[in-house]
């Protein structure tokens, strides 16, 4: 990616996450080096990556990716990415030396366009912790950041059309299904369809799920 100074004008209200964001049951926070065991357990899990665009990652690849994630804490210019650990306090980390709870997922925002105030949201959850609404809870906090703090006008999500769990979650969040793209991705050895969901700022602000 181009250096920051060459990436056009910044968004008027940039977001930088330094402190943990506490939700009802979770903590969203920047990653630390101590998260590697938990992170590698996610990135090396078949179910986690099945519908994701990236391959299974070894521990070494996970470490490299985690190093990048640790720097992704700021949204200011087009192309900036924010990746936060979804921590479940009280659940012991796979790293016995870690002093925080286990990282059970990853929550992200990509600033797609400053000029059009467009943000893409992403979520990943370790399957051992599925079915409890954790991804929804984390994504609500991320929508609050994108719309409430960053000033996004629209937040969209792209997902594999076979990923019915994520599609249902997008709908629970009040996102609108805007499109179905036929065979637009060559994906792990086959053509895949993708779904496109989005929500506008005024829709999110009016939703009982937002922090208002």
């Amino acid at each position: 990616m181009k250096p920051r100074v060459l990436r056009g004008r910044p968004i008027p209200t940039p977001v930088r996450i330094r402190e943990p964001i506490v939700t009802q049951r979770l903590v969203l926070r920047p990653y630390t080096a101590a998260d590697l065991d938990d992170y590698a357990a996610m990135q090396g899990n078949d179910e986690v990556v099945r519908y994701m665009l990236w391959p299974l990652r070894t521990r070494k690849q996970s470490a490299k990716h985690l190093a990048r994630r640790r720097r992704q804490t700021r949204l200011q210019h087009t192309g900036d990415f924010l990746g936060l650990a979804i921590e479940l306090p009280g659940e012991p980390s796979l790293n016995p030396k870690s002093r925080s709870g286990r990282v059970i997922g990853d929550a992200s925002l990509l600033l797609r366009s400053v000029g059009n105030r467009q943000v893409e949201i992403g979520w990943v959850l370790h399957p051992d912790f599925g079915g409890k609404g954790y991804a929804t809870e984390a994504s609500r906090a991320m929508l609050d950041i994108a719309i409430g703090r960053l000033g996004a006008h629209r937040v969209m999500a792209q997902l594999d059309a076979r990923n019915t769990g994520s599609a249902a979650m997008a709908e629970r969040l009040g996102m609108r299904r805007e499109g179905l793209f036929r065979e637009d991705l060559w994906f792990k050895g086959a053509w895949g369809d993708s779904l496109y969901y989005a929500i506008l700022d005024e829709e999110w602000t009016a939703s009982p799920l937002s922090s208002g």
């Binding site: 629209r154 805007e178 036929r182 496109y196 989005a198």
Partner: peptide, 26 residues
């Protein structure tokens, strides 16, 4: 081509939000 998507307020142009249609064919 098939009408595959209607992106609501995808672009800010000339003082208004523009909805964008995407059509596709294989």
């Amino acid at each position: 081509m098939r009408n595959e998507a209607g992106l609501v307020h995808d672009l800010w142009f000339d003082g208004r939000w523009v909805d964008v249609a995407i059509y596709g064919i294989l």
